[in-house]
Nucleic acid binder design. Structure first.
Lengths: 116, 116
DNA sequence: TTGACATGCCTAAAAGCTTTAGGTATAAAT
DNA sequence: ATTTATACCTAAAGCTTTTAGGCATGTCAA
């Protein structure tokens, strides 16, 4: 494998799963497996995150008190439904602001014309 | 320190230094120390990356052949000026496309209305 | 002239997040 | 009966940025 073919993991995705989980759960209750596919769908197939990313994030968010869970049995399978808490709403607002701040910063830098 | 006060590093910055270095160097030759401050300035003070992030990235990009360097002595200090190569232009185009793809995906997901 | 600060380069360890690559179990479909 | 989809989970690897230094020269004020 040529040196130029090395993986370039700089994928602009850091923090996006966290933001989108909170956003989707602010609209309605969802369970983990559902979130994985809903993020994909909601982003127009642009964003796909592995279960190995989503499930641990849900556990952290619940520990932090940003979401709460409720168990429900469906067809013999058990689903863990999550929903945003008040604290989660605050966190979501913070993250949306931060996303916008970064987005604007990048856009501005990309369009920046150096003062000659 | 309360559990809720833990560091939340999800900062949406992954890959941004790489993108902006290439973008700024596509406009004119710059040296590392200059890049650190130019990124900050060009983003309207929104984005600040440490030297410990920028310098190693420059070395990697040069190894990959995306940028080339030229040494110049100024006032007894030595500056390493970098400039984009043809390959670097390609890489920049790829990364701009990827940034846009992710940006659009996030915007779409944030504005997404679930079909009830 | 000495002390502080900005310039200009560098690196290694720590911290953080996502991917990869599994594992377990039940229901549905072929 | 076997494969596929559902539904949960975790640990290790892989990448990137931050933190926290180090080294050396020039400038400016005290």
């Amino acid at each position: 494998m040529a040196k130029s073919d090395k993986k370039r993991g700089a994928s602009f995705l850091n923090g996006v799963p966290n933001l989108l989980i909170l956003k989707l759960l602010s609209r309605r209750e969802m369970y983990g497996y559902e979130l994985v596919r809903s993020i994909q769908q909601a982003s127009g197939e642009a964003l796909v995150f592995a279960e190995g990313c989503i499930y641990p994030l849900l556990h952290v968010l619940e520990e932090e008190g940003c979401i709460s869970s409720r168990e429900q049995a469906i067809n013999g399978r058990t689903r863990l439904y999550y929903l945003l808490t008040g604290k989660g709403e605050q966190r979501l607002a913070e993250m949306e602001r931060e996303w916008d701040r970064v987005r604007q910063g990048v856009v501005q830098a990309l369009n920046w014309e150096p003062v000659s």
